[in-house]
Design a binder for these strands. Structure first.
Lengths: 193, 193
DNA sequence: ACCTGAACACCGTTCAAGT
DNA sequence: ACCTGAACACCGTTCAAGT
């Protein structure tokens, strides 16, 4: 191949891309998504310029992290739909949704605008995740476990609201979620079963 | 009086203090609570230095605005307790609580930490507001309208979560609140009556 | 071709001079 | 005594030089 030097370069670049994503996860977990790109660069052992090469803006890096989470949640919804009774699958998934977002301070807030975004790649990842969540919701409705009138967007906004409030609550989301579930479910929440 | 010059100074300063609070409200309403202090200064027709003289930090100005809202909500709770049936008073107040915070982008987020703050003057204003809300909550419980186990802190975190999510929702808090109310109230929400 | 980090630009904060 | 805004400090971003 005449392009071997180029391929090595691309391999290095791909590795740095992964390193930066991993560093972003670590830094975001410790300091929230508003941490400086300098901190992410230091944690990855790379120069600031390299961060900007791979992610032109602060938002681009947040969005890359967010896209990973959305894909995880999408596939998790599909899995739960196969393996769990409808109501159980929905309740479990909502708990995991909130757990994902409370891990990184500020991420739930960064997520919310993507619910109205149908243009960017991130918006598409969100649409796919929402469709998977909507499938769980419809299954639970057909099982008679969820009241009519709830749409997926409203459900995800409620869950995100809990995630954001939980960031500043001494006991996290645990005391908050049951009250919303009681509002959403047709019968009193039956624990995790 | 030998201090007349000083009194005139104090009068000017007091007027500027009010001007800055009014300017902060206007700027926050337009741009959210993360707006620059320069913008607030310009809107008030004063120099930036004057903002810093009256409010040493960005947080101090946010807190002053927040304290005003907390006092309004406190007195409103006391009023509703006198004039409305228990369940109605609580539901109305929660709606007004959310309306207050959705007026200023970022204010609900700034409010949440004060729920765990028992030291600063702002923390005391929050404690008073929470006590007034708790009174409404207990009244509704005694009327059998609210399920046992809900405390005022959890209730206010749920309401704040809705307010934050509503900032990014096309239809605001309206589609979100009923689901939480249904979880909180013993019987299905009876509209506003 | 990619990476680096010093240089640049920007914005929040301070404080010497003015009223 | 308070107010002003130019000067300062800081941090996010860019880009010329290096590998």
């Amino acid at each position: 191949m005449t392009a071997s030097a180029g391929q090595i370069g691309r391999t290095d670049a791909a590795r740095n891309h992964e390193r930066l994503l991993a560093a972003a996860l670590a830094v975001y977990a410790a300091k929230g998504v508003d941490a400086s790109l300098k901190e992410v660069a230091d944690h990855a052992g790379l120069g600031v310029g390299t961060v900007y090469r791979h992610f032109p803006t602060r938002e681009a890096l947040q969005e890359a992290v967010l896209a990973d989470h959305l894909e995880t949640l999408r596939s998790r919804a599909a899995e739960l739909a196969q393996t769990h009774p409808a109501a159980d699958a929905l309740v479990t998934w909502l708990g995991e949704f909130i757990a994902h977002f409370t891990q990184y301070r500020g991420l739930a807030r960064a997520f919310l605008p993507t619910l109205s975004d149908r243009r960017t790649p991130l918006g598409h990842a969100c649409t796919d995740m929402r469709a998977a969540g909507s499938m769980l919701l419809e299954g639970a409705k057909q099982a008679g476990a969820v009241r009519a009138g709830l749409d997926a967007g409203t459900m995800l906004r409620l869950a995100s609201g809990i995630a954001m409030a939980a960031e500043y609550a001494p006991d996290g989301a645990a005391p908050l979620l049951p009250w919303v579930l009681d509002g959403v479910l047709s019968r009193p929440a039956a624990g995790t079963a």
